[in-house]
């Protein structure tokens, strides 16, 4: 597997960083790859927008920043507007379809939408939106083994919420697999 650079963006409170941590954990602890996560620190971490940069590679990672992501995951309109210009042509856009209207994409970008917030609400807690997105990411990209991501979800969520989060993961994962026609 070549190096994959991922940018995840959204609003503070959506669990953006945690979703990045789960992807990084799945890759580096449960899937035998290397992963580096850089959080966007600074005023924006406290304001509306919030983002994580995750690099996943089979080889050790040198330069840690994500400048032109192969995969952009956005959970808010602001994040989409801010990060889409840097999405690599031919890359992949994963978006919350009820919050983001994906227009003016770089050339050749494949886009995949999911009503993640609605799914989360249907599952009973809007908070699990980020886990739905993680499942969706796993289902669409196939970058990581579903088992590894599932383990990473379980290892990252508060005790007592495992079932709910697993259901959220599955919901997103299945939607993702449907989107790519698996």
């Amino acid at each position: 597997m070549a190096k994959n650079e991922i940018r995840i963006g959204g609003l503070g409170g959506q669990g953006v960083i945690l979703s990045g941590i789960i992807i990084g954990k799945a890759a580096s602890i449960y899937d035998g790859k290397h992963a580096t996560l850089i959080q966007a620190f600074g005023p924006e971490a406290r304001g509306s927008s919030c983002s994580a940069q995750v690099t996943v590679d089979d080889d050790p990672i040198g330069y840690p920043y994500v400048k032109k992501p192969d995969i952009l995951v956005v959970m808010s309109r602001d994040a989409f507007t801010q990060f889409v210009p840097n999405l690599k042509p031919g890359g992949m856009l994963l978006y919350e379809e009820e919050l983001v209207d994906p227009t003016d994409l770089p050339k050749g970008v494949k886009k995949f939408g999911i009503p993640a917030t609605r799914y989360a609400e249907e599952l009973g807690r809007k908070l699990v939106l980020n886990i739905v997105m993680v499942g969706f990411f796993a289902g669409v990209t196939g970058l990581l083994s579903p088992k590894a991501v599932e383990k990473a979800v379980l290892a990252s969520v508060p005790r007592g919420t495992e079932d709910l989060n697993l259901r959220a993961f599955k919901k997103g994962f299945e939607h993702g697999q449907r989107s790519v026609g698996v």
Partner: peptide, 10 residues
């Protein structure tokens, strides 16, 4: 440094 301090890895 700030990057090493805030960078998350295995």
């Amino acid at each position: 440094d700030e990057v090493v301090g805030h960078m998350i890895e295995r």
